[in-house]
Amino acid sequence: MYFTYIIRCGDNSLYTGYTSDINRRIKEHKQGINSKYTRAKKFKKLEVYFISGTRSEAMKLEYYIKRLSRNKKLTIIKNPQILIEEVKDKGEYSLGE
């Protein structure tokens, strides 16, 4: 099981990443380790995460989300189902909910 996630930083910027252990990764972001971006911008909160069956799917989803506009990411944070439906329609991802 893999996770693709969006976190909000102290300056209100959004960071997207993927991991096999969401709890460990969020602790690392909070401690400012293993990510230059969140070390500099400071972790504020985990906004949303999505579960994928494989590392490859999680990485593809991360790439997909990173290409979205900030406004689209904010919409997904408010309603994650939008992203789930979008990527399922593309047939490239099999997201758990």
Rank of each mutant, 00 (worst) to 15 (best):
G91L: 09
R25D: 07
R67G: 11
T75L: 13
N79Y: 10
K45T: 12
L68K: 13
R39D: 12
G91V: 05
A40K: 15
I33C: 04
R55L: 04
R25Q: 11
I26V: 14
I33M: 05
T38W: 07
I76E: 04
R39G: 05
G17A: 08
T19G: 06
L83T: 03
K41L: 05
K30N: 10
E62I: 02
E86W: 06
F43G: 04
R55K: 15
F50R: 04
K36P: 06
I65T: 03
F43T: 00
L95F: 00
G32P: 02
G53Q: 14
T16N: 09
N23L: 14
Y2N: 03
K60T: 01
T54F: 07
R70D: 11
K66Q: 13
G17P: 01
S35C: 12
G10S: 13
Y18G: 00
K60V: 00
T4A: 10
K72F: 04
I6R: 07
T54L: 01
Y64F: 10
Y2M: 02
I76V: 06
H29S: 06
R70T: 08
L83N: 03
I6K: 01
Y5S: 11
A58N: 03
R55P: 03
Y18T: 10
E86M: 09
G96R: 14
G53D: 11
T54K: 00
K78W: 08
C9E: 08
I65C: 00
L95A: 00
L95R: 00
G96K: 14
S94V: 11
I65Y: 00
I22K: 08
L46D: 05
K27R: 15
E57V: 03
G10D: 12
K90T: 10
I26T: 08
Y93P: 00
L68R: 13
L95S: 01
Y37P: 08
